[in-house]
Amino acid sequence: MDLSSINPILLIASIMISATPILLAAIGEMVVEKAGVLNLGVEGMMITGAVVGFATAVSTGSPTLGFAAAALASAVLSLSFGVLTQMLLSNQVATGLGLTLVGLGLSALIGKPYEGMKSPTMSKLDIPILGDIPVLGPMLFSHDPMVYFSLFLVLAVWGFLKFTRAGLILRAVGESHDAAHALGYKVIRIRMMAIFFGGACAGLGGAYLSLVRVPQWTEGMTAGAGWIALAIVVFASWRAERILIGAYLFGGVTVLQLNLQAAGARVPVEILSMSPYLITILVLVIISARGAHGAPASLGRPFHASR
């Protein structure tokens, strides 16, 4: 075994890239769940974002526009989920699963002409001074802007939920929609906004896959990343800072196991391959065993003002 061929600088840089799509999708979904809505359509919104982002970037030549279009498209798609579950009171689980199926089908349809094309790549940020630091520079400060945006988003969501009045109201809606309603807050409107935000984040995550991480459009390319994002929300017990840890841990183990294989580590491949999932399940079990779930009390429950 020759582990010296693994370059820690490149490894950590890869981990950051690998974790970003699920980080974006998971932080969005967390806000949705904090408002008391369970949207299982993350996978569908991600792949829609992936295809719309790719298509826009190819036709306009601008990855930034691609990301914006992806966020918008997935957010609009998520609104259909919002209308069905919040206004027409359909079952959230079934509707969310439906959204995933719709997203997968729709993206295949939209993406047909874009197969095999190449997207304009997003240039890496050239951060002065920080980027010149010997080891840390190439490791942490030479990524594309979306990596930093995702980190900023985690910070913003954390601050929003912890320190702002609006964040408090959002949490109140998620904990007890009846109490929030009695206090005069517009439960449905707040939830719709949360769903919209969640959709936009999932779209960005998907577009990161098709524009930066892979970068190309292939049908079904999210390959379950949306479900991982959902698991990470539970893993993080609905806390923004733990979402970051969860996404980086998952991304880290995924990339590390591939690097260990490439370096010829004498560890059974089966164990390496299942390790990301294994560790996720393990942490989920530990969290459940401790009993501190932290799930919003109204999560997944339908709300109607007359009840």
């Binding site: 890869s14 079904g220 390959a223 990339v255 490439a262």
Partner: peptide, 20 residues
């Protein structure tokens, strides 16, 4: 890779090999 089709994983695998 233990998959026939997972673009993100295939891409990561290719990167890991190139980095090595």
């Amino acid at each position: 890779a233990y998959t026939w089709f997972d673009p993100a994983k295939e891409s990561d695998a290719a990167r890991a090999l190139i980095e090595n």
